[in-house]
Design a protein around this nucleic acid. Structure first.
Lengths: 174, 174
DNA sequence: GATGAAATAGCTACAGA
DNA sequence: TCTGTAGCTATTTCATC
């Protein structure tokens, strides 16, 4: 019952939030998701609003969760991690209970940058960063080694990266 | 010849940069890649350095490319794009010349958040955001529809996301 | 790398539409 | 309720040691 009420509340919040975003908000968001170092004054004159108005809107977007995080994106290669790998994980049973431990290990593993629970042949898709293939092997051993619910995993090495980001297309300003 | 010199230069830069990063830099980077809103004063006292020292290091990390970008990460669901899809693209020929047009379309398509060129069965792995399945279908038509070098593509819908980011593990502070 | 001054950005209060 | 003006606080930035 509590979970049900929570879900209703979440839906309501999302609905009310989505409806409250106007063209100014979208313009501000699009600037910030490209370059979060833009000053409020600069944003203000680009979207034709005053600096405090921009400030208030940004604060509201942060509070409401539309802005999930403000982060620096680092160059993994320059930091000694030139390898990116993608891993499809196939389970025997994909019931949450059976894979809870695996999920926890994945969440706790810093080298795993992304993990999606997916439909289709595989159950998880991971994006992993590593310094060397030996390190990656050790990682797979830690994650999958003793888990008899993992049927198999298929690794692909990323030879290159055409694009990488979490940029969300925003209406006409996408 | 020019390309060769460029590659040598790049290698030299990377080497010199990698070697010049000390524990302070790594500590600063790890703070920034988690929360880029941290003030220099705050960072300074956390890493036991003065604020201007932190400021100089950050500037240097920006200039050298270790800090690739400073961005706001938005909630796609709250912005009307609740769907995330992963797409494996299989080509007939993976020679760059034959896939140049496809690469260009992928780069130009805002809904494609990430695209990795990978080894193994598939040639590309895409992470895509979409508002509806109809939109996604239209996207695949735009990207792959008239490209006879695309043998097939395999879509998986992301049912959930255990983690998502580009956080790079940094030594002992990972 | 630290200190301190100047410039700039961010934040709050208030008035008006 | 939201915008814009004004003014204050805090942060960033730069010159000097």
């Amino acid at each position: 019952m509590r979970a049900y009420l929570d879900s209703i509340f979440t839906q309501f919040m999302q609905l009310s939030l989505t409806m409250d975003l106007d063209a100014f908000d979208l313009a501000i968001l699009d600037i910030l998701q490209r370059d979060n170092t833009s000053s409020q004054r600069e944003i203000a004159q680009r979207v034709h609003l005053s600096a405090p108005a921009v400030q208030r809107r940004i604060q509201r977007l942060r509070d409401s969760g539309v802005i999930r995080a403000e982060v620096a994106v680092l160059d993994a290669t320059l930091l000694g991690r030139p390898l990116t790998l993608t891993v499809e994980v196939h389970l025997h049973e994909d019931h949450p209970d059976r894979s809870a431990a695996l999920r926890a290990r994945i969440k706790a593993e810093p080298a795993v940058q992304q993990c999606y629970v997916i439909t289709g042949e595989a159950d998880f898709l991971l994006i992993v960063t590593a310094a060397t293939m030996a390190d990656y092997e050790a990682l797979t051993e830690r994650l999958f080694g003793k888990d008899d619910n993992v049927r198999r995993y298929r690794t692909s090495v990323a030879l290159g990266c055409l694009k990488a980001g979490f940029h969300v297309p925003l209406g006409n300003t996408s």
